[in-house]
Design a protein around this nucleic acid. Structure first.
Lengths: 372, 372
DNA sequence: ATGAAAGCGCTAACAA
DNA sequence: TTGTTAGCGCTTTCAT
């Protein structure tokens, strides 16, 4: 009956009725009678409207009368229709996929960001495709572009330190791909950026140590190639300046953000005749190295040496003594980045987004005490 | 000229020629003349064959003559044609996406697996969609199914402990979705499984401690809800039995794989009058807790107390003293899982895959020594 | 070995 | 407000 005749290959088959009359109730358990995943055609037929109207309902277009919308929605719910994302994407040049590009050695950081991003994306019906990469690879920008174009990603989030790569950003812009960069300093438009103020946390470290009476402070900086290292440096020096405490250049070492480089730097600093009473290592890994050297040299922490790290990694709370460090709300950063991106995807005509800023804060634990 | 007239909306426009005669050389720099991403139609037109033949070339069908294939391939390379994955997927019910489902608190583990999976998937042109989940959620199986169906994932990899959930596996099977489970014990067909033998590593721990002369050995087991905890338990007891060393039930505690639970268990064990001379904690987190308690109680490690962990997390090598522990080749597991999955996707008609097994091995560091 | 035509399930342009 | 008609770019019958 009804359209039963002109049905094409693969059309869903209903056993009772094809078209449901306007005024008839929609039968229960229609899903039982569908032999395969329902399509927009099934919904259209069953609710007696055109494909396009169903499409309008799906896409929340205002151009549908209330009762029509309701009727269609009822059929959708009844037969459990869910639009096919591939088809939708093919027709509208979207994919409902976001990308996450990173080259960060810190697993905790990456996973936390992923969690935050996913929390926001799931709400909006987006999935996340991950893409670790090699910052030093010459073809990086092209490779990232290929990644987004291949799957037609609707947008990408870039984590530090790849986020600092201008070529990558430029390539994405050229490919017309929306992106959000997680950055330590405002080097892009604020609608493309989630900023984290590492420097504020570093300044708090300086003040904390100064307030504990430390005057000979050792400092293990991060590698120059990381923007965050500069920011931490700036903040630390600024904090010391605020407390009018000097930083002896002889007590400054540059580390590589690794455990081993922390050990090496600590060995230099702690074998000086005028060894520092406190050391600020620019990340927890290096601070762990400092602790190890202190133990080896028989220095008690914090009684004879205060140690501060940065990142609040799992390490920080599990070391002995637990590390005074600096914490960034990482998961929140992921959420903010995803929300910012999705906002622009879903609502392209909105005014440019405002700044998104998170601030690093000091976490005081057991590894710091008054200067001896 | 040529097909210039019947051209449809959106057709690529060439400035010089539409059809290239059979015997004419293919012009250089054709990409310049294409106003948008080239499609299969462009390739077909330029190489003077039908869409279908181009499709055959793309899909490596043997039903194409050598010279035809070559000619088509030349055009593909020249204009930089890359098939649209959405269109391909829509027509052939694929997505070129793999899923990774996990509920693992260990960030290092997750990231390493992701790396391994990606290494294998990139080679095959697959991308990875990540899906952390909540093992305790009642709707988990349905939710995972929804995840794979929504994006029509070509396959999923399940990590422990979600991988141990039979409902999830059953739901995936019902949805006709290929999956590979990373498991500590063979509870599924071997074509669906990558096995890791935790128990072997645990047995090595037992032998190591026994060989160092320890007879009063404390043991902090993992939570019963983890299959790996059972396997580690089995292996440990087996190893002890092989060395004819007994395990005093009074020296056995159950932990929760957390730092705090390790501390709590260690406090009980170490405050006994007949305190153990060695403690095996079933993961590094708990072992870190043991170390902390030992320091608090003034026990020197390893002189007075040997401590062994499991996982070889970053923690293990950064603690002081560094932890003797057990290592699993995590990245390789990810690779194996992905290869196994892709093999089945790309080549559905192959005989059921054989076992994929990795073995956990003891890593001796500074936290173990001869019994006092 | 190759091709024509009809889909895949959806959106978009243009009518009505 | 709603429907009609073409697509999106590819694969798949089924011919030839």
């Amino acid at each position: 009956m009804g359209l039963g005749v002109g049905r094409k290959r693969g059309e869903a088959v209903l056993e009772m009725a094809d078209v449901i009359p306007e005024d008839a109730p929609i039968p229960d358990d229609l899903s039982w009678t569908l032999k395969r995943r329902p399509t927009i055609n099934d919904v259209a037929r069953l609710s007696g409207v055109s494909k396009k109207t169903v499409s309008r309902v799906i896409n929340q277009s205002p151009l549908v009368r209330g009762d029509t919308r309701e009727r269609v929605q009822k059929v959708i719910d009844k037969i459990g229709f869910e639009p096919d994302l591939q088809a939708r994407g093919l027709a509208s040049q979207r994919s409902f996929l976001l990308g996450l590009v990173y080259d960060n050695p810190n697993a905790q950081y990456v996973v936390k960001i992923q969690e935050g991003v996913l929390e926001a994306s799931r709400r909006a019906g987006y999935e996340l495709v991950v893409h670790p990469c090699d910052r030093t690879s010459p073809g990086l920008a092209a490779e990232v572009r290929h990644f987004v174009e291949r799957q037609k990603l609707d947008g990408v989030i870039l984590l530090p330190p790849v986020s600092e790569n201008e070529q990558v950003a430029a390539e994405l812009a050229e490919a017309d791909c929306r992106y959000v960069r997680v950055l330590a300093a405002p080097i892009d438009r604020s609608s493309n950026t989630v900023l984290y103020y590492d420097w504020e946390g570093a300044a708090e470290v300086a003040e904390h140590l100064a307030d504990l009476g430390h005057r000979k402070i050792g400092y293990i900086a991060g590698p120059r190639s990381f923007r965050s290292a500069h920011e931490r440096d700036r903040g630390f020096r600024q904090g010391l300046a605020r407390r009018r405490v000097g930083l002896d250049p002889a007590l400054v070492e540059e580390g590589a953000y690794t455990f081993e480089s922390g050990e090496a730097a600590a060995e230099k600093l702690l074998s000086r005749p005028d060894r520092p009473t406190a050391i600020f290592a620019c990340n927890d890994e290096m601070a762990a190295g400092v602790l190890k050297v202190a133990y080896r040299m028989g220095l008690r922490v914090p009684e004879e040496l205060s140690v501060v790290g940065f990142d609040d990694s799992p390490l920080a709370s599990r070391l002995w003594p637990s590390l005074t460090t600096v914490r960034l709300p990482i998961k929140e950063m992921g959420q903010m980045a995803a929300e910012k991106l999705i906002q622009r995807i879903v609502n392209p005509g909105t005014p440019p987004a405002t700044d998104s800023i998170v601030v690093a804060r000091l976490v005081i634990r057991e590894s710091t005490a008054r200067a001896p």
